[in-house]
Design a binder for these strands. Structure first.
Lengths: 162, 162
DNA sequence: GATATTATGTCAGTACTATTGACGTAATTT
DNA sequence: AAATTACGTCAATAGTACTGACATAATATC
C-alpha cells in the first residue's frame, strides 16, 4: 500500500506529478504571448464566469489585489478582457472576455482537456463521476461554493451571480 | 456534462481548486520555518528517495541547478538534509534526510494525507485504485518512470536506483 | 598520459508572481 | 455629513524561477 507512518505518500506524489504536467501544456502556449500562469488563471475564470467582479476574482484565486493588478491590466491592454461598469453598483467592474480572450482561453484549455480525456479513456461515466467527486472532496469544504462548475445550479450559458 | 466546445472545463477547474487547497496545508507549516514550497518539494523527494543525487533531483523537479542551489543549501544549513559523497562516483553527492528532516517531511505530509483520506472516506479499495490510476495517467508517459511510488518495484525501505 | 566529459557548485543578471502597506477616488450606505 | 465599499495605484520587498558563464574535481576515453 506504500503507506509509511500512516502517511499516504503515493497519492501525495502522484498529485504533484499530475499537476506539474497538467500545467505544462498551457505554459508553452502562454510563452508565445509573453504571459504566465497568472494570466491563464485570470483568463480562465473571466471566461468561465463572465461578468464576475474584481473582488469575486480575487476571492476565487486567493491572491491580493496588487498581484492581480498587473496581470489583469495586461489582459485588458492586449484586448483579451474588457471591464464594464456594474449595472447595479457603478463602483464594480464586471469582467468579460473578448472574442480574442475566449479564443485564447479555449486554446489553453484544449490540451488540458485532451489530457483528461486520455486519462479517462477506458473509464465509464461512473468512474468519471468518481474522479470528479474525489477532486471536489479535496477542496476545502467552506470553499466548495466557488465551484458552480457543471453542477445542477448552472444549466444555461450564464452563471448565476449577476 | 458541462462540456462547452468539447472542452472539459469541469475537471480542469476542479483540479485547480483541489491542488490549491492541497498545497495550502503545508504552506502554513513551512512559513514557520521561513521555507517555501520549493523547500517542501526538495525535502519530500530526498525523504522519499534517500540517496538520490543532485542530477536525479533536478530531473524529478524539472527545475534548473541554479534554482535548486539556494533551496538545497538552506536545507543543508538548517540540518534537514545531508550530502554524502557517492560511493561509486565520488563526484556525485547523495542526498539524505536527517532525523530532523524526516520529522519535518512527515509533519508536512500529515495534513495532506488527512485530506486525501477524508476525500476517499467512503471509497473502497477499488475506488482508491481508480483515483491513483487517473492521476498516474495524467502524468506524461515518458516521465512515469519517475514514479516508483508504491509500485511493486519498491517493497523495502530503500529505493531501487543506487 | 593528455584530453574530453560528467557532476556539481557558484556568480551575475533578470523575470514573474506574489506579498504588505499606504493612499486616492468614486459610489453607496448609514 | 460621515462611514464604508469597490477599485486602482504607488512603493518596496520576497520567493521562485530562468539563462549564461565559469570553476573544480572525478571519471571516461583515446
Amino acid at each position: 500500500m506504500s503507506v509509511e507512518d500512516g502517511i499516504d505518500f503515493a497519492i501525495i506524489e502522484l498529485f504533484f506529478f499530475a499537476y506539474r504536467d497538467f500545467t505544462s501544456d498551457p505554459d508553452q502556449i502562454l510563452a508565445d504571448y509573453g504571459f504566465g500562469r497568472a494570466h491563464h488563471r485570470v483568463l480562465h475564470f473571466v471566461n468561465r464566469r463572465p461578468g464576475l467582479t474584481v473582488a469575486e476574482l480575487l476571492d476565487v484565486l486567493k491572491i491580493t489585489k496588487q498581484s492581480l493588478a498587473r496581470v489583469l491590466k495586461q489582459l485588458i491592454d492586449t484586448d483579451h478582457v474588457v471591464q464594464l461598469q456594474g449595472p447595479r453598483d457603478r463602483r464594480q467592474r464586471e469582467l468579460y472576455p473578448t472574442a480574442k480572450g475566449r479564443a485564447l482561453a479555449l486554446a489553453l484549455a484544449r490540451p488540458q482537456s485532451r489530457r483528461i480525456h486520455a486519462a479517462l479513456e477506458d473509464a465509464g461515466a461512473a468512474e468519471r463521476t468518481l474522479v470528479e467527486r474525489f477532486l471536489e472532496a479535496m477542496v476545502n469544504p467552506e470553499l466548495r461554493a466557488q465551484i458552480d462548475v457543471g453542477s445542477a445550479k448552472m444549466s444555461g450559458k450564464n452563471h448565476g451571480e449577476h
